[in-house]
Design a protein around this nucleic acid. Structure first.
Lengths: 196, 196
DNA sequence: AAAATGTGACTGAACGTTCACTCATTTATG
DNA sequence: CATAAATGAGTGAACGTTCAGTCACATTTT
């Protein structure tokens, strides 16, 4: 019973993920999500307040799960360069190994949802989020140890991680081919961009 | 009379640009575009076959105008690094000085329109486009002169110019502040990413 | 030069479709 | 049998698109 409830919720989230990733927000009407999840339309509204809430929940769960995978084995004691390579490499790998999640998050990112989401994060003084801490920690350490260039945080993020998004997108739609060697070279290029 | 005709067409394109840039494709129904352009709804369909055609036309005109601005004073005779700085600097400047055009093109880029558009370009053997030539020329020269890293073309583009898009986006929504000095440092970082 | 006729850019109410969301009803659970 | 969960036809709002009609102006006729 408790199991079934979770299953239905998961099925709805999964169906939404697949449809939105593949066809965009427009190609994923509630009726289609319900059909793909083998659930009645009305059931969606038993688990989520409305479609926006469903989408935002889906985004948050994906981001949380992704960050868990990316930061596994992360050792705060290692030198900065090593930590950056660890995170960047895993980030790029996650994106090309999870094309559905990546494409969804990307669509979210560039939609009004994403703008609002980033606004909130940007103007939130309290960055409690453990994952943000890791990324921001790289910046803070790099600056205080005089290892990385003198840019503000958001520019640093673009240089360090924005590239990875661009490259992952091209990979998902088939514009490039990436293996472990190329991935390492790309992460190296990102490092060159930020290091002094 | 011939003047008035052009004016109406321009007004429709301008209204679409402003509405889509600010509120996304969803926030720009034909009725609203017509109202903003001081034109009847039906008139849109006198100048454009349908809404898709209007959007694609708008994109093409912006891209064409932007490339004209960016490649002014471009000197093929100058050394590679200098040419790269010229193009990258002007590209970033164009984007932050034309936030409406930038935001529109970005929305276009990440929508189904953009995917189709890029597919076509990617699989078009004949890159007649003069502007593509300039960007691709930088890559070809850099590789043959052994100045830039050994990446395939699409990865090179992401490293060299993808960053600029990310940074321009953050700038438009107010996440960073850019002056000529910072712009030069950013272009320098892009150069570090691609140079051997 | 005045009147009659023709033209097509322009208009906006109306249409068919699609969508997110509701709720009366049915089904499952304890 | 009482309560909670699930259902899907139904609803109204919003959308892109259409088309019968208008009117300013060009052309022809008287």
């Amino acid at each position: 019973m408790e199991k079934k409830k979770r299953d239905k919720r998961e099925a709805i989230l999964r169906a939404a993920l697949e449809l939105i990733a593949e066809h965009g927000f427009h190609g994923a009407p509630t009726a289609m999500i319900a059909a793909k999840a083998n659930v009645a339309i009305g059931s969606i509204y038993r688990y989520f307040e409305n479609k926006d809430a469903l989408i935002i929940t889906l985004h948050n769960e994906i981001e949380c799960a992704a960050m868990k995978i990316i930061t596994v084995d992360y050792d705060r004691g290692k030198p900065l360069k090593e930590r950056f390579f660890h995170v960047a490499r895993r980030m790029l790998k996650y994106m090309i190994e999870h094309p559905l999640e990546f494409r969804f998050v990307e669509q979210f990112f560039y939609s009004p949802y994403g703008i609002a989401f980033r606004r909130d994060k940007f103007f939130a003084d309290t960055a409690i989020d453990n994952d943000e801490d890791i990324l921001k920690g790289l910046y803070d350490d790099g600056r205080s140890q005089q290892i990385i260039k003198d840019f503000e945080l958001s520019v640093f993020f673009s240089l360090a991680f924005g590239i990875l998004f661009n490259i992952a997108r091209d990979n998902v739609v088939g514009f490039n081919k990436l293996d472990d060697i190329v991935i390492d070279k790309i992460v190296g290029a990102c490092w060159d961009a930020i290091k002094l």
